[in-house]
Design a protein around this nucleic acid. Structure first.
Lengths: 247, 247
DNA sequence: TTGGTGGGTCGATCGGCATCGAAGTGGCCC
DNA sequence: GGGCCACTTCGATGCCGATCGACCCACCAA
């Protein structure tokens, strides 16, 4: 009756890998695109090293992670952008529950992340969303018949030093919308999104902050203001002083 | 240390819904886009009605399914196209294991599904993949800077009786690639993919076969051959006579 | 060689959950 | 109204997996 293709074991097996809170935390941490050691992941997830080892073995066997041994360290990272997209999609599917404010420290960190961060290998947060808006406003992008680069958009990328031609033809889509957790609106992913993120860092427009957070440098403010982003969108908002205040 | 956004419970909770083989089978069955009764799902999954009831309640509470009660029947369907895409992506992520041939009956059914079927609300299988290829060959579509309709593509759709303008501006992307399980290459999804599937059926070019299978009518053969598809691609291949034969 | 550190393996424990049958509820039809 | 049917609720059962501590192994630096 049931065909192999509709047998749910494959799907269930893959989903089961992400169905554990600890493994899910690992994957979300790895969404920053870097390789983490087993010990680092154990600490962020708050579990014993032995537990971590078991989870990582599973995730690697399941193809979600790839590992690289260096001396006594075990580095793991997401297997490829497709896996990152899968996790983004799953994580973005449900609205984040209204989060209780815990401390000034945490609130400051949250504000920095909400402002600008990396999402696997591209820019996210308010910065990422506004960047996409600006590119559309300037007609460097169009989403009339699906997201696409315009002629002037290609020229702009070339001027910036992004080799657009090399990005074409890969298995990865050139442009992709990725739903932003904090903004609830799309930011720019895909090969171009990743290339822009790299290039901004190379040009010294952005620098890495704490964790996945990203800060815009003075040079970046100048450049991005020229693109049409408001200066106020380029610095983190002060931390929310608390819930009970005025609505 | 960890922020609310990086707490894995949301992600894990969603994944857990799909991490059970029975629930996964339900979701794969529901990928045909129709509403199924609880009893039908119980039969395809091979579990007791009481078990089914529990699973469905969970899936509805989790937002993956929506239900509609009609008399003594409980109809469920996928909540929206975003859920369908999520399940497609998860299911398509892993290569289907080489499947053992079970019987002539099953092999025939498999061949029919491999030939042409619906995938949620658009065409899949060899037919779906070749259709996308043909549209690209004819320059009705382009994927130079992301998948997009060309001017002639818009005209062709209008001639066909597909109201392209009404499809724009929805929350659903106009065009989207969806990895085909059997062909391992993309077929056409998104609003246009769904509209084409509906329109083909309205025009009498396709009719529903067993389950999710789709058959191309003589009128459909004429029309699609005109688009550049080979006649041999429009009929199911004979069932694979077995494994051990010549490679 | 010796100690320290990062990591893996093993066994035990424990909670959660998928499953079923039996009994109950409510709609539908004759 | 009587009977059937689709579905739900409720325990009981059994299994799988997440976790930890204890121990072991590999690597690195004095």
């Amino acid at each position: 009756m049931t065909t192999a293709a509709s047998d749910g074991h494959q799907l269930a097996g893959l989903a089961a890998l992400l169905a554990d809170p600890t493994r899910a935390r690992f994957c979300l941490a790895l969404l920053d695109g870097r390789a983490w050691t087993a010990g680092e992941l154990a600490r962020v997830a708050g579990v014993a090293p032995s537990t971590t080892s078991d989870h990582l073995t599973r995730l690697v066997r399941g193809g979600l992670l790839v590992e690289e041994r260096q001396g006594r360290h075990r580095y793991v990272r997401l297997a490829d952008p497709a896996v990152a997209q899968l996790i983004e999609d799953l994580a973005g599917h449900h609205p984040p529950a209204p989060r209780p404010v815990r401390s000034l420290r945490a609130a400051t960190a949250d504000a920095a992340l909400a402002h600008a961060r990396t999402c696997y290998d591209h820019l996210a947060g308010r910065l990422g969303v506004r960047l996409r808006d600006a590119l559309l406003d300037r007609r460097l992008l169009t989403d009339a018949d699906g997201l696409a680069l315009t002629r002037t958009g290609c020229d702009w990328l070339a001027d910036l030093g992004v080799p657009v031609e090399e990005l074409r033809g890969g298995r990865r889509p050139l442009l992709r919308d990725c739903l932003d957790w904090t903004e609830r609106r799309p930011h720019l992913a895909g090969a171009v999104g990743a290339a822009l993120c790299r290039r901004f860092a190379q040009l010294g427009w952005t620098v890495a902050g704490v964790g996945r957070a990203v800060r815009v440098t003075p040079a970046g403010v100048t450049a991005l203001t020229g693109l049409g982003l408001a200066p106020a969108e380029l610095t983190p908002a002060p931390p929310d002083p608390g819930r009970g205040g005025r609505a």
